[in-house]
Amino acid sequence: MKNEPLYQQIKNKIKEQIQSGKLRMGDRVPSEKELMEEYHVSQITTKNALAGLAEEGIVERIKGKGTFVSESAFTSSMNQQNKSKGFIGLILPTMKTKIDQEFVNYIEKYVAKNGHQLIVKITRESQFEEAIAIEMYKKMEVKGMIIFPTEKENYNEAVLRLSLDKFPFVLIDRYLENILTYSVASENENGTLEAISYLLDKGHKNIGLISPIITNTVTEERAKGFEDALLKRKTTINKNLWLTLEFNDISKNKTPKLIKDFLLTKPEMTAVFTMNAELASYTHLAITSLKNETGRDIELITFDPPGISGISFIEQNIEECSKKTVELLLEQIDGTYNPRRIFVPVKLNQCEHFESLLLVDKI
Rank of each mutant, 00 (worst) to 15 (best):
6 L>P: 04
243 L>N: 02
172 I>T: 13
46 T>D: 06
11 K>L: 10
106 Y>H: 15
54 A>L: 00
349 N>S: 00
187 E>F: 00
326 V>D: 04
11 K>Y: 06
205 K>P: 00
273 F>Q: 01
220 E>S: 11
37 E>K: 14
362 K>D: 14
36 M>H: 10
306 P>G: 11
359 L>P: 01
56 E>S: 08
1 M>E: 04
330 L>G: 10
246 E>A: 14
24 R>W: 00
131 A>R: 12
42 S>T: 15
345 P>M: 11
279 L>A: 06
157 E>N: 12
186 S>M: 07
225 G>L: 00
86 G>F: 01
167 F>Q: 02
347 K>N: 12
235 T>N: 09
296 R>A: 05
332 Q>E: 14
197 S>K: 13
175 Y>N: 11
237 I>V: 15
326 V>M: 04
333 I>Q: 06
12 N>S: 15
243 L>H: 01
167 F>I: 04
153 E>I: 13
124 R>F: 09
312 S>W: 00
164 L>Y: 06
95 M>H: 00
341 R>D: 10
342 I>R: 06
254 K>I: 14
143 K>V: 02
3 N>A: 12
6 L>W: 05
338 N>R: 12
116 H>T: 08
253 N>E: 15
309 S>W: 09
71 E>C: 01
277 A>S: 15
139 K>H: 13
321 C>I: 14
177 E>I: 11
300 L>K: 06
21 G>C: 09
301 I>H: 02
87 F>W: 08
25 M>T: 05
299 E>L: 03
363 I>C: 06
14 I>F: 05
28 R>L: 05
127 Q>I: 07
30 P>F: 07
293 E>C: 03
220 E>Y: 11
175 Y>W: 12
345 P>L: 11
311 I>F: 03
300 L>R: 02
261 D>V: 08
292 N>M: 13
257 K>E: 12
86 G>I: 02
179 I>W: 00
336 T>I: 15
97 T>Q: 04
233 R>T: 05
310 G>N: 08
284 H>R: 07
362 K>I: 12
254 K>C: 03
172 I>D: 01
143 K>W: 02
185 A>V: 13
136 M>P: 00
120 V>F: 02
304 D>V: 07
187 E>Q: 11
144 G>M: 05
30 P>Q: 07
272 V>L: 02
319 E>R: 13
10 I>D: 03
311 I>D: 01
14 I>Y: 05
100 D>K: 02
116 H>R: 07
361 D>R: 12
40 H>L: 12
243 L>E: 02
121 K>M: 14
176 L>T: 05
224 K>T: 11
280 A>M: 05
75 T>F: 07
326 V>I: 14
194 E>V: 10
167 F>S: 04
30 P>E: 07
2 K>Y: 08
170 V>E: 04
20 S>G: 09
263 L>P: 03
238 N>L: 04
200 L>A: 10
362 K>Y: 08
55 E>D: 13
126 S>P: 06
129 E>F: 13
158 A>H: 06
22 K>T: 14
153 E>L: 15
243 L>M: 09
332 Q>F: 10
132 I>K: 14
